[in-house]
Design a protein around this nucleic acid. Structure first.
Lengths: 220, 220
DNA sequence: TAACTTGGAGAGTAGTACTATCCAATTGAA
DNA sequence: TTCAATTGGATAGTACTACTCTCCAAGTTA
C-alpha cells in the first residue's frame, strides 16, 4: 500500500503521516524505489494505535514514542514487556527538595504499598505519580484518609485483575503490546469517565432535588 | 499581602501570577492605590488550587478557568454545584459522522448506564468521553467485554461513594468547591497511579519470573 | 531623595502538533 | 512518448499553550 492509501484507510492526512515517520512514531515503509515505499497492514495498525492514544487518551507524542521504542526491543518476557510499556507511559516525577508535604505523602504511599504487599519495583514511576497526587492534597489541606486510599487501592487492583484477564500469554508479542497499551491508556479514559458518571449519580442520590435523574443540570 | 508575598508563599513566580490575573484564573486583588493591590488568604488558596490542577492533574488552564467560572455563580444547590464543576472539567466530545464503531459504542454505553440505573443527565460530557474510549477500542479491534465494563462501572461507583462521603452538605460553598474539584482531579491521578501499580503487581503474580517483586525491571 | 517595589501592559520564547510548500524522481494514462 | 499526477523527502510556516521578560510610571521605604 502507498502512503495515500494508508492515509485514506486511516483518515490521517498524508502530511501528518510524513510527520509521524520523521518523528519515529511509525516505522518507514519498505523503499521500492527512490520515490516509492510500500506500507503494510502492520503500519496501518500502528498508525491507528498512535491516533487512538493521541486523540482519545491524550498521551503526548513524545510519550507514545517512548512506549513504542521501549516495546520494540526484542527478547523480553511478558512481565517485563508489560512493565516497560507501563514505565514509559508514566511521566517521571522529580521530588521537590525539603517539602514536608512531599515527605509525608511519600511515607504514606510507601506504607500503603507495603501493607498491601504489592510487588512493585522500588523505582516504579507510578509511585511518584501517587506520591505527587497525595502530596498535592496534603498541600491543599485535604489529605485523603488512609481508609479512602485503601478503598481506591482495592478498586484499582480489581480493575488490574480484569485487565490482566485480557492478556493471553500464548498470543504474539505484537498482540500483547497492542492489548497492554490499549488497556493502560483507553480503559483509563473509560474508568475516568465512569467515575465522573458515578459521581453524578451518587451526587443526585444524596443531594439531588428531583429524584428522576433526567437532565438535572442543563443538558450540556 | 502584596503580590511578592503571594509569590513567596505559593512558590509561583510573580510573572506567572500576573499572567493568571490577566487570564482570569485568579481574581484581582483589592486596589489600594494605582500601583498597589492587596491579596488575601483566599487568593493564596485559589492560587494553590490552580497550580495543583495544572501541575499535578495536568488540567489545561482553559479548563481550569471554565471550572472556576462555572463554580463562581452564586445561588445554586450542592448537586448542581458539583455537576457544573464536573461538566466544566470534562472536555466536550463531538461525535464523528457515519462511524459504525462510534454508533456501536454509543449504544453500548447507553445500555450500560440504563442497566445500572445511574441518574446522569442525557447531555453529560462524561458520556461522550466513555463512548469515545469504547469506540477507539472497537476501532482497534479490541472492544471491552460487557462484563469488564460492568466491573469497571462497579469499581467507579464505589470510588464515587467514597468521594461523596468527603462532601459535607453543611460546609461552606467555597469549601465544597475546593473539595469537589480536588476530589475530581487529584483522586483521579491517584486512582490512575494505583491502577498502574496494581497492574504491575498483578503482572508480576501471573507472569513474573522471580516472585520477590523487588525491582523486576530496572529501577526507573 | 534615591533605590526599590508594584501593577499593568505588551512583546518575546519554548514546546507541541501539525500543515504547507517545494523538489526531483517516478508512475500511469493518452 | 509525453506529460500531468503522485510519491518520498526536506524545510519552513502556523496555531496554540503556558509562561517569561522588559518596560514604565506611580508609589513606598531607607
Amino acid at each position: 500500500m502507498r502512503i495515500s492509501e494508508l492515509s485514506r484507510r486511516s483518515g490521517v492526512p498524508v502530511a501528518t503521516i510524513k510527520y509521524y515517520l520523521r518523528e519515529n512514531l511509525l516505522p518507514k515503509g519498505e523503499a521500492v524505489s527512490a520515490t516509492q515505499a510500500e506500507y503494510t497492514e502492520e503500519h496501518l495498525k500502528r498508525l491507528r494505535l498512535v491516533r487512538a492514544l493521541a486523540e482519545v487518551a491524550e498521551v503526548p507524542l513524545s510519550r507514545i514514542r517512548a512506549v513504542l521504542e521501549a516495546v520494540d526491543k526484542p527478547d523480553i518476557d511478558l512481565h517485563t514487556l508489560l512493565g516497560v510499556a507501563q514505565y514509559a507511559f508514566t511521566p517521571p516525577t522529580e521530588a521537590p527538595a525539603d517539602d514536608p508535604d512531599w515527605e509525608r505523602a511519600q511515607r504514606r504511599t510507601a506504607e500503603l504499598l507495603a501493607e498491601l504487599e504489592w510487588r512493585v519495583g522500588p523505582g516504579s514511576p507510578a509511585r511518584g505519580q501517587l506520591t505527587r497526587a497525595v502530596a498535592a492534597m496534603e498541600r491543599l489541606g485535604r489529605p485523603p484518609s488512609a481508609q479512602m486510599l485503601r478503598g481506591y487501592a482495592a478498586a484499582a487492583h480489581q480493575a488490574a485483575e480484569w485487565d490482566m484477564d485480557c492478556i493471553d500469554p500464548g498470543a504474539s508479542r505484537e498482540e500483547n503490546v497492542q492489548q497492554a497499551v490499549t488497556m493502560s491508556a483507553l480503559m483509563e479514559q473509560a474508568l475516568s469517565a465512569l467515575r465522573r458518571l458515578a459521581q453524578e449519580d451518587e451526587s443526585a442520590r444524596r443531594f439531588g432535588c428531583g429524584a428522576d435523574g433526567a437532565g438535572a443540570h442543563g443538558e450540556g
